[in-house]
Structure formats: C-alpha cells, structure tokens
Design a protein around this nucleic acid. Structure first.
Ligand code: FES
Ligand code: FES
Lengths: 133, 133
DNA sequence: AATAATGATACCACCACTGTATCATTAGTC
DNA sequence: GACTAATGATACAGTGGTGGTATCATTATT
C-alpha cells in the first residue's frame, strides 16, 4: 500500500524545494546536492513535469527550472496521475478483459467506494498546503 | 493504485464463493471450474488462508476446504494484511533507512492521514457485507 | 571555445507479482 | 489393497513495472 511511487514522491519533494525558492532558477544539480536524490532520475522527472506544464525550463549555462504555476494550483493527485497513470484501477481485469461482473460485483463496489473517498481527499491537497506546515 | 493484488483478490472471491456454500466442502477444482481462476495459484492461496486460520481443510478423496469463521468475522483488511504484508507503508524509506524527516515531513503527514482514513474504512468491510449485496 | 545546463530517447537491473511443478501425504471408493 | 482425488510443503520460473543510467543533441552563458 504505497500510495506514491518514487517518481511521484521525488517530484513532490522537488516541487516543495522549488516552492521554497520561488523566482530562483533551480537545476537538477541543485536538487541533487540539497535533496540527495539520484540525479539522472530527477532529470527525467523534471522533464516530465515540464512537459506537463508544471515547470518552465531554461536551457544552457545557468539554466534550470522554475515553477510554472502557483503552489496552490499544484495538486498532489495530479502528480499521481502523471507518474502513476490514471487512477480508478480497481477495475477487475479478469483474463485481460474487464470483468463482466464489474457492474454488480460487491467486492468492486466496496473497492471503488473506498478508492473514491481516498481520491477525493487527495484532490484537496496542494503544494501550498504542504508548504504551510 | 490497485488496492488489492491478485492473490488478495482471488482470496476474496474464493471466500465469497465459499460463503455461498456454507457447510459444503469446496475444493480447488470446484473453484477453478466455477470461477475460472488458475488452479495451482488458487491452491497456494487457499493453503495460506488455511494456515492463517480462515479455512479448515480436509485431505484426501472428496477433501477440500470450508470456512473456519463466520463471514462477519472475515475482514477484507485482514486478507490484505496476509497477502500484501503490513500496511502503513507510506513511511519514507530514503536510501534504505527510514527518513529522519518522517516525523515532520508535511508530505508524509498528508499521506499517512489519507492512508489511515482508507484503512479505517476498509476495516469495516467483512465478507458478510460483501455477501449481502 | 569551453562549460553547464536541458531535450529526447534508448537502455538496463532488480524485484515483486503471478503464477507452475513436484513430491509427499491423506482419505475415501471399489 | 489398489486407485484416485484431494491437500501440505516447497522449489522453481516468467514477466512487467519500478527505479534507475547513459548517450547524444541542443542551447545559453562565460
Ligand atoms: S470478479 Fe470481476 S468484478 Fe468482481
Ligand atoms: S522526505 Fe523522507 S519523510 Fe519526507
């Protein structure tokens, strides 16, 4: 029951870090140095965040990244979507097809309800919330 | 975000099946035939359930399994514990040690809170609940 | 020109998940 | 008593996703 995979986790930490240095340009090297996270992996993660519109990048000497959005608009659940794919995977994939019983299966009903509750909660969590504490 | 792994899932389905045939002895062959689940895998799963005290087994010809507990005492969360290990894994394992910042990390705080809510909900779900619907 | 950064992309290793296979044992059936 | 159909215990195996690394091209500053 790990809610986050590493890339989501690292992404969140990197964004938190950058949230604390708004206006400044932050490079993977900075993050690697201060957060001790594996450098090439972080690069890939930051590149993905840039593609998704969460970061603005500047190439070249003294290049790096800055937040493209105010922290209040960066939602944990969206990071999860980016790095962990679409949620609501408690669909029953039975022999590679979606199980025909999905609509009525009592087990799925419970799982989906629990998952919805979880997702709803996580929807409320923004980078700004995390920075406050 | 798959809340259940296959073995937990299969276990739940098998138990549901057996819940619908209380008193009768059910073999892996029966489950394989009616639920179309992989037979040797099911065997392993049922054996684990037996070890954990959820099933009573009878060896030999016409042998099989029966529920060892009333459905109201079989909790989904316990199946998860058996097949997916202890929960509350949103501990931050940072470079293989538990991260020193765990106690104060705002990200962990949120995750743990969300996870607790989820687990609390799942704690309430028993086999009897699933059978009712 | 040298350097230090990102962009894009291919590659790789490990491990958990998802099974299979085998041998031994036990209990009914005939 | 032999046969058969079940579980017990355990070892083995495939595969996909996670968690990275490596490389080459491009861009900007010094
Ligand atoms: S068994 Fe497939 S949804 Fe319940
Ligand atoms: S970074 Fe390890 S707990 Fe937050």
């Amino acid at each position: 029951m790990n809610l986050l995979t590493r890339n989501t986790d690292y992404a969140a930490r990197a964004l938190l870090y950058m949230g604390g240095r708004r206006g400044q340009r932050v490079s993977t090297a900075d993050i690697h140095r201060d957060l001790k996270l594996p450098r090439p992996f972080m690069r890939k993660i930051l590149q993905q965040l840039q593609k998704e519109g969460y970061l603005v990048s500047v190439k070249g000497y003294k290049g790096g990244f800055t937040l493209a959005l105010p922290p209040a608009k960066i939602r944990l659940i969206e990071l999860m979507r980016i790095f962990q794919g679409d949620l609501s995977l408690s669909d029953c994939l039975f022999q590679k097809k979606i199980c025909s019983c999905v609509a009525v299966c009592p087990l799925r009903r419970e799982l989906k309800a629990a998952e919805k509750m979880l997702v709803d909660r996580l929807k409320g969590v923004t980078l700004a919330d995390l920075m406050k504490k």
